[in-house]
């Protein structure tokens, strides 16, 4: 037996898959957004709002990743958008290989944007590059303003943070200024969008960012 020194990270093979997937997306002129959050933060409600608001402007499809069940995909399909359900079979996150499988099962010919709704979990998804072009993290007001302190990696890895359920601010001890300060300390360039998907407040700024990122990705193909 001989010894081979490798010094490769655990995720080296996944990182390669993720780069390949981005090349594939570029060829197809499709942007992939990876949505990460805790369970119950309002990912599906936020997506439903975005799909309804942007229906006339872009063609949106959704990949729902769950350990089991298809309830989220059914909600998205009810809005007339293409949805595919991916089961991770007990795994706590999506990796680039699983994301590729999901994308290959979709019809991307007239699609501009694919949202990947990652497994509800603030730890593991941040460690795996899914092949997405941009990572979006969702934090809801009821979860509390201490989350950047508890789950720093997720905030560091994200390009945008959407703070959902701002209509519930009067009922919770949630210090918006403190959250923004804590997040900026971890990630000075992150975009922050406080929204209420239910009432519509703040959605325009988030949607404008989505459209701008899509334009940049597709036109530089």
């Amino acid at each position: 037996m001989k010894i081979l020194e490798l010094k490769e990270t655990f995720t080296a093979s996944n990182d390669l898959d993720a780069e390949e997937l981005r090349t594939y997306l570029k060829e197809k002129s499709v942007i992939l957004f990876n949505l990460m959050s805790a369970p119950g933060s309002g990912k599906t409600t936020l997506l439903s709002r975005v799909i309804t608001d942007l229906k006339e402007k872009v063609n949106i499809a959704v990949m729902e990743a769950d350990i089991a069940s298809a309830v989220d995909a059914e909600r998205i399909e009810a809005l007339g958008a293409q949805a595919v359900q991916v089961h991770t079979d007990g795994m706590c996150h999506m990796d680039a290989g699983m994301t590729r499988e999901g994308l290959l099962s979709m019809d991307l010919t007239s699609t501009d944007i694919v949202f990947l709704e990652n497994v509800g979990n603030l730890i593991c998804p941040a460690e795996y590059d899914t092949g997405a072009v941009k990572n979006i993290m969702i934090l809801s007001v009821p979860e509390g303003d201490d989350k950047p302190l508890k789950y720093p990696l997720m905030f560091r890895e994200s390009d945008a943070l959407v703070i959902t359920k701002t209509d519930a601010l009067p009922y919770f001890n949630f210090d918006m200024g403190k959250v923004i300060e804590r997040v900026r300390k971890l990630n000075p360039t992150i975009k922050i969008f406080p929204v209420s998907a239910k009432k519509g407040g703040g959605m325009a700024a988030f949607e404008a960012w989505l459209l701008e990122e899509t334009k940049v990705w597709v036109t530089h193909a």
Binding site: M1, K2, I3, L6, T9, F10, A12
Partner: peptide, 11 residues
């Protein structure tokens, strides 16, 4: 916080 494959013994 690293996770790396240091080395393998193989033939």
């Amino acid at each position: 916080n690293q996770c790396t494959i240091k080395e393998i013994e193989a033939e």
